[in-house]
């Protein structure tokens, strides 16, 4: 794990609103899904109520391939939250679908994470009711 959690503290959980509920519900079921316009088919992330291309309000959810590459990263040398121990790395992953997602890596040292590295999604089961989509290096 590249993020070590402090078990005595609260882990920062996502706040869910009506627009993002389907995304986080899927994550709890160990699925990564993206919003897709029900009319023009454009994929988008993060979830929003309207298609920015055709302004349709119809929404579908499309399973992601879960595969992508590291687009950027930063290492926190001092933790911004008592629930997480520094140092840890935050990554910006570019998925094969072309969408980007903020996440963490698992099973890798901070210094070994490189831009361009191929990764795939895994689900980190943090508590009974909190899964987070994270990524693992693909050889």
């Amino acid at each position: 794990m590249t993020v070590n959690y402090n078990k005595n503290e609260m882990i920062p959980a996502p706040v869910v609103d009506p627009d993002s509920k389907a995304f986080w519900d899927a994550v709890q079921n160990q699925e990564l899904v993206f919003q897709k316009c029900g009319d023009c088919g454009r994929l988008r992330h993060p979830p929003r109520p309207v298609c920015p291309k055709c302004r349709s309000l119809n929404i579908e959810w499309e399973p992601s391939s879960g595969k992508g590459t590291i687009y950027s990263k930063t290492i926190y040398r001092k933790s911004p939250h008592p629930g997480m121990k520094a140092p840890f790395t935050v990554v910006l992953v570019e998925l094969d679908e072309g969408l980007k997602l903020i996440s963490n890596m698992v099973d890798i040292k901070n210094d070994d994470i490189k831009i361009g590295m191929q990764v795939e999604v895994v689900f980190d089961n943090l508590t009974d009711d909190l899964n987070l989509p994270k990524f693992r290096k693909v050889d």
């Binding site: 920062p12 609103d17 627009d19 950027s72 990263k73 930063t74 911004p80 903020i102 831009i115 987070l132």
Partner: peptide, 24 residues
Amino acid sequence: LLHWAFHSPFGLMTEQGAVAMLAE
């Protein structure tokens, strides 16, 4: 919510981190 919910669970919680990501 939309903005933070997709960042803070992964520890990206500060401006410094947010800009560092762009800088990298």
